[in-house]
Each structure stands twice: as C-alpha cells, then as structure tokens.
Design a protein around this nucleic acid. Sequence first.
DNA 1: ATTTTTCTGTTGCATAAGCAACAAAAACAT
DNA 2: ATGTTTTTGTTGCTTATGCAACAGAAAAAT
Lengths: 208, 208
Amino acid sequence: MKLDMNQFLFEFEKNCSKLQKKSFKKDEIITTYIAKRRQICILLSGSADLVRYDSSGNKTIVEHFTKNELFGEVFYIVATNNELFVKARQACEVLFFSYDTLKHKCKQNCDFHQVLSENLADFILDKVTLLNTRIELLTKRSIRDKILGFFTILSIRNFSKTFTLPFSLTDLADYLSIDRSAMMRELKYLREEGFIKKNGNTITLLYK
Amino acid sequence: MKLDMNQFLFEFEKNCSKLQKKSFKKDEIITTYIAKRRQICILLSGSADLVRYDSSGNKTIVEHFTKNELFGEVFYIVATNNELFVKARQACEVLFFSYDTLKHKCKQNCDFHQVLSENLADFILDKVTLLNTRIELLTKRSIRDKILGFFTILSIRNFSKTFTLPFSLTDLADYLSIDRSAMMRELKYLREEGFIKKNGNTITLLYK
DNA sequence: ATTTTTCTGTTGCATAAGCAACAAAAACAT
DNA sequence: ATGTTTTTGTTGCTTATGCAACAGAAAAAT
C-alpha cells in the first residue's frame, strides 16, 4: 500500500496517540537538535530554517524546510560541537515523534504499522534525493555553474523554460552557499550574454 | 530486531533469491544510473566512485563509496541530463537488487521481511547522515574552514587529536570540491601558523 | 496611510582560490 | 629491479568571488 504524505499523516493521526502537533509563531525555535533523542518532525504548514552556529559564532542556514518536509536530529548526526536548531520563518504547524516510536510502537503487529514503516523508508529516500540535489549544485566549481544548474533543475521540473524561483534571491544565494552580491553580478552577466531572461524572480532560459 | 550491516547481509543472502552478487575489476563500470529501475546496491568489498559527466563534458567524482555503503539510482533522482555511473576504484564485490523487490517481495508476510524493511530505513538514515556531513563541509565559506571542519570530524570520530586521512589528499580536495593545489597551500599555511602538524597523511590538531 | 523591515540591484576594492606547470616521492605494475 | 603511473608538494600568475557599502523597490507591520 503506497501512501502520499497527506494520507500518511491522516492515517498516522487516526491511529497513533504518541505523536504531538504544535504551532509556532514566526521566529520561534521549533526544536534544538539533541542526537540521543532521535526526534523526527514533519512540517505541516509554514516554513522553517535549520540554523547552525559553529564554534566561532558563524551563522549558516543549513536547510530550508517547506510543507511536508521531514527534519529532526535523526537526519543530522554530524560529529561536531555545532549548535543546531530549527527556527520558524513563518507561522508553522509541526508534528513531532520519535523515530524509534514510529518504527516499533505496536505490540499487536498491526497492518497499519507495517504500511507505516514501509512508507517511512520512501519519505526518507525523498529526503536523500533533496540532499543529493543540493550536493550536486554545491560541488559545481563556479557561481555560474551553480546558478545554471539550479535553473536547469527548475526548468525540467516545470516542463518549461520559464519558471518562478521557489524562494527569494537572498535565500538562493544561501542555498548555493555563495555571496549574494556576487550572485547578482553573475545573473547580470548571464542576462547580458543572452543566457537568461529575468523579470523579478521569474526566469526564462534562452539556451539550447 | 536490530541488525548491523553484516547480519543484514547474511540474513538477506540466506532468505532471498532475488539478489545478485557480482565482482568487478579496477576501473570497470559497476552500474549506470537509470532512474526508473530503482536499483539499490551494497558495496561488499573494495571501493568505488560515483562519477558524473555534465552536458559540457566536465567530470566530477560526486561520491566515494567504501565497504558496506549503499548506492544506486534510488538515492539519486536529480532532474538533470547528467550521465551518472559508478566505477570500481579497486576490485569490488557488489550486491544488486531492486528497492521495490526488497520492500514488497514476500506474499507470505514473513517476519524476515518485516525486520528487513525496518532495517532498510536505518541504513538509509546512515546515508542521510553521510550526505549531511558532506553538505556541512561544502557550505563552509573558505578552504581553511572546509579543511578544519573535516579534520575536526575525523578527530572526534577517532577520539584523538591525531588521525590518518581515510583517503588521499587528491581525493580530499575532490570531496571538499576545492582545487588541490590551493588546498595544499592552505595546509602549508595551517602548518606554518601552528594549527596543525602534518606527517604525510597523518594529521595532528594543535588548537584548543 | 505611514513607518519599518526585508529584498533587490549595483559597484569599487581586495584577496582567496583557481589554473598551469613542474619536480620529487611514493605506489604500482611488469 | 626497473619502468610507469599516481600522489604530494610547491610557486607565479590571473581572475572569480567575497566584502562593504549604498539606494531604491517591495513587502510587512503598525
């Protein structure tokens, strides 16, 4: 039995008492990552950022989450002393549970749990795909290649040479881990050299 | 029931006929990524690289796999036209199966398959951790921060300020997506400024 | 409706990091 | 044992990219 995320949540909510749903206002801290707890969260609405402070105090937005995305410390066991927390970017609703609870809860060996654990693997696989996409872009050698790589993905996903960015240009620079002004400059060059057309946050690819 | 990778493989081999084991010599192509097949592979011995050629012909080593690591197209559904394949770096033994087969094979609802699909999620989670580690390093802003970030992780994993690199310096530059000579220069500076001691591929951290 | 904040767009300057090219050392192969 | 290939280590030159600083546009808040 194959579920999409909405069915998954509906089934889960109907069947399980162990999960908690909470609401957050903009800028509130949703969770702080504590490895041993093995918490897993689903963002039901709104958007949130995974923020890292390293030992020198530098801040990075490591990931940006939107509707139906998974996050939590099970996904992020990195051997460093960095502080990691998730902060609401807009008002959010979040579902909390423990990974181990989800997997092993039912003593009665119910069908529902079988379905659940099968689908969990699929959702985690979706996450892997997101991460691999990001790595694919981060490993490109120049700002130009990063931008064009990202645009190509959006173009293919939209079945169109024209598409609108899913987040602000400021966030895009952060996602690609490049300086925003350097990115804007490169976008200008791409426009001048006839590779792209740009109207605010709507882009059209002009090549190939 | 919680399995480690070796137990997992033993159980799988004993119980499942649907899986294939093959051997490869150095530089042979182990698999080419074809999204619809949803293949999943486990590297039993040796080491291999996931290689990407983009449309301009640039080659990148996207990932490097060693014993017991998972790879395959289920993990890498990126919407681009890039050619992706896995190439043996040394002689390798590889286990092949389809993700969907693994999850749904048994009609008889056997206990073994229940255990299997639970553990599959865990193995995929390990993969997520690896990917997040890589992203953590790739998003650092300077070569120095990337190197020190990587060294810090190794140091923590080894419970020691002294450790040996798990692969060559050439590969390290590739893993961090930086120019090798620039990395060597930075290592020299780090030595001169007293941050590290370096003896071949053995590093000692001198700070904090 | 007006203020405040965030986002976009731009530019000059400094430098970190890429590129190219080479030699010595080490690892591998015959 | 000897030749071949890969890895390490280095350095001069060039340039892509980061940084700082600013102004106008857009969005959000009051």
